[in-house]
Structure formats: C-alpha cells, structure tokens
C-alpha cells in the first residue's frame, strides 16, 4: 500500500496538469484569426461580403455600408429524430411533468469592412452561436470564416471577369 501511494499521487498530479485551461488569447491573436485582407476597394468588399452571407443562407439584420458593418444570422432547426429523442427522454426523466423539445440553433456573423488603401480592404468576421460570441480559435468559427472567405473571394473574382463583347449586329443585305 505504501508503495502504491506515491504512484497514485503522481498520477493525480499528472491528471491535474492535464486539466489546466489554456490562457485567453490576446487581442492581437484574435485579430490575426479574424481579420483578412482582400484585394478590392471597400465598396466591392462590402458587396462581396453581403453576397457571400446571402449565398450561405444568412438573413441580414443590420447593414450599414458607410460604417462597413453587417450583422447576419442563420437558423438551423434540429432534426425530427433529435427532437423526438429529447422529448421522450425529458418526458421519462421528469415523469411527463416537464418534457422539452430541442430549440433551434442560431448562427450569427458580424462583418466589419476596414478600408486600408484604395484597392485593398481588411475584413473582420466574428461568429456567434445562439447570441454569444464563439472563440476565434474554435474549429466551428474557423470553418465558418473560411467558408465565407472563399465565397467572398469568388465574388470579387467573378466581378473581375471581362464583360463579353456584344455580338456584332447582322448587316442588312
């Protein structure tokens, strides 16, 4: 028993160290994750961001082009199976007194357009889940930002394509 105690204590210490929470990110680290630059003037970056959000199924709630601010939100309903399972489990656990369904999830995004030069713009995207900000280094946040970013760049590239020349009018014989 005496030999086991130090081993158990050292194991407990090792596990406790594993529980250490990671330190909060500095504002510079958050900015590095949330802000990206795009080769387009601010008005085009703003239009591209609006289009990207609409393409991704977001509903725009706030849009102020002069301030370069957009707020958008997307509702995702739980599947019927999830809803039924939660209803059944809560009904059984509470003996039918407080059965609860699964509420929808709301994914929000705030976009800030920051003019840098005449042809370059910085874009900050911050994501929210059910009204609360998601950490910038969370995989869900990074995935959302990356998807929106790809769509935005596609929008800017699409507008860069040359307009096809009009076909020559048929000459009368």
């Amino acid at each position: 028993m005496n030999r086991l105690s130090p081993i158990l204590i050292s194991l407990a210490c090792a596990l406790l160290l594993g529980c250490e929470a990671s330190p909060p990110m500095t504002q510079t680290q958050v900015d590095a994750l949330e802000i990206r630059e795009i080769e387009a003037p601010p008005d085009r970056a703003y239009a591209a961001a609006s289009n990207a959000l609409l393409d991704s199924g977001y509903q725009l709630h706030v849009s102020d082009a002069d301030a370069g601010i957009i707020t958008a939100e997307r509702r995702v309903d739980p599947s019927v199976a999830t809803n039924t399972a939660k209803l059944l489990i809560t009904a059984i656990l509470t003996r039918g007194m407080a059965a609860q369904d699964q509420p929808p999830d709301y994914f929000g995004v705030c976009v800030e357009i920051l003019p840098r030069t005449a042809s370059a713009t910085a874009v900050r995207m911050q994501t929210y889940l059910n009204g609360r900000v998601e950490p910038a280094d969370s995989p869900a946040s990074q995935k959302t930002v990356q998807e929106l970013w790809t769509l935005m760049q596609r929008q800017v590239l699409m507008k860069d394509l040359p307009v096809p020349a009009a076909a020559p009018a048929p000459t009368a014989k």
């Binding site: 706030v62 002069d66 301030a67 601010i69 707020t71 929000g108 009204g131 609360r132």
Partner: peptide, 24 residues
C-alpha cells in the same frame, strides 16, 4: 466586437451604434 457584442443597429451619418449580447 472585441467585447462579444453583435451589432443590432448602426447609422454612420448620425454616429450611433447599438449592439447586444445574450447572457447565458
């Protein structure tokens, strides 16, 4: 944005902004 709020209204001309965040 740094403080975790999302914009609920913005008017650059008037110089006003309103934002919200949801308590747990």
């Amino acid at each position: 944005l740094d403080q975790g709020y999302y914009f609920t209204a913005s008017d650059q001309g008037a110089g006003t902004m309103t934002a919200a965040r949801v308590p747990l």
